[in-house]
Design a binder for these strands. Structure first.
Length: 315
DNA sequence: AAGACGAAAGTGGTTGA
DNA sequence: TCAACAACTTTCGTCTT
């Protein structure tokens, strides 16, 4: 029961929260397994905990000061995060005295190069901001790391082709993530990405279409079974449910019951039927909620499916 | 009482003139 | 540009478990 507490680095006791399962006050933050665990009943309250502690240890104040590496804050609103030097355009030194002629031409040359470097940095800055944006979205949706990598590649391509100018970095970043999801067969909706990125569905859709057109991508439409596996995961049902739901969908496709219908509705209905058949029943409302369709739609699809399908199939 | 069902009216997107 | 249309949603009353 308390095995979590015995592992690795000492877990840290939380003061305020209480266990939602047994009401116990002894909650532990366990960084080894990245969980918040109740010490009384073993219930895991939170997963994917982020470790905010420093990775070094210090035994006294002096060591702490020596080892801390953080200093003044950086800002993403300035391209180089506000950390680079600037050469003033006044031809004066720090005491306010004018430069001698020879130094003046030297300063002029330095200034020229500084400007050139800054121009190339504009792209870097754009990229840096976009990458942090992509990371944010991918984390919000708990997408795998590979998605982040691919989305970054897409974004870099967009920069290279100068597609960003005049458009918002955030919009293009979100669109890159969406394209990646679609390419990798992850059924994420525009709505989900829009929520995770604070970009309106309209703008996201526009950026997405723009990128697809300009980068000449071919994006296959979302398959119904991609939704099924997503729903099955979110419903936390056994694999059998997903398997049967997929069978239902294959049969439905053969009977031309899928064309012209929203894939989400079909997937939701198939998942519903499968969950009932397997005996791990989920309510229509539960499924409707995660599928982002209404119960009525599930009912309509499910009625059609049952009428035409069940007696044909050997389940 | 919760969940399922279904009718009816409303909404947003696509299609074709 | 506009009307027609199908799919889907919202709402709400009723039935079933």
């Amino acid at each position: 029961m308390n095995e979590k507490s015995d592992m690795g680095a000492a877990p840290e006791l939380l003061g305020v929260q209480r266990c939602s399962e047994c009401g116990g006050a002894r909650l532990m933050r366990d960084y080894e397994s990245a969980e918040v665990v109740c010490m009384d009943c073993g219930f895991v309250l939170d997963i994917r905990l982020m470790d905010h502690r420093p990775e070094w240890r210090a035994f006294d104040n002096e060591q702490r000061e020596k080892r801390a590496r953080t200093g003044a804050s950086v800002t993403f609103t300035i391209h180089d995060k506000g950390l680079s030097t600037m050469i003033d355009w006044h031809d004066r030194d720090i005491y306010g005295k004018k430069f001698p002629i020879g130094q003046k031409t030297q300063i002029y040359r330095l200034r020229k190069w500084q400007r050139r470097i800054r121009v190339s940095n504009a792209m870097e800055r754009n990229l840096a901001f976009a990458l942090s944006e992509i990371t944010k979205i991918a984390n919000n949706l708990s997408l795998p790391k590979s998605i982040f990598e691919t989305a970054s590649v897409i974004y870099r391509k967009a920069i290279k082709k100068k597609l960003i100018r005049g458009r918002s970095i955030q919009g293009i970043s979100a669109a890159s993530v969406y394209i990646t999801c679609r390419q990798c067969g992850l059924a994420r909706t525009l709505e989900e990405i829009s929520k995770a990125s604070n970009i309106s569905i309209k703008e996201l859709g526009r950026s997405y279409r723009y990128l697809v057109k300009e980068l000449k991508y071919f994006i296959p439409p979302v398959k119904v079974n991609q939704y099924v596996s997503k729903f099955s995961n979110q419903l936390t049902v056994q694999g059998k449910v997903e398997e049967i739901a997929n069978k239902i969908i294959v049969a439905a496709r053969d009977l031309k019951l899928t064309s012209g219908r929203g894939p989400k509705g079909i997937a939701a209905a198939a998942s519903y039927i499968a969950s009932v058949l397997v005996g791990e029943r989920r309510t229509q409302r539960e499924i409707a909620e995660i599928a982002k369709v209404t119960e009525v739609t599930i009912r309509n699809r499910y009625k059609e499916l049952l009428e035409r399908l069940l007696f044909i199939m050997d389940l």
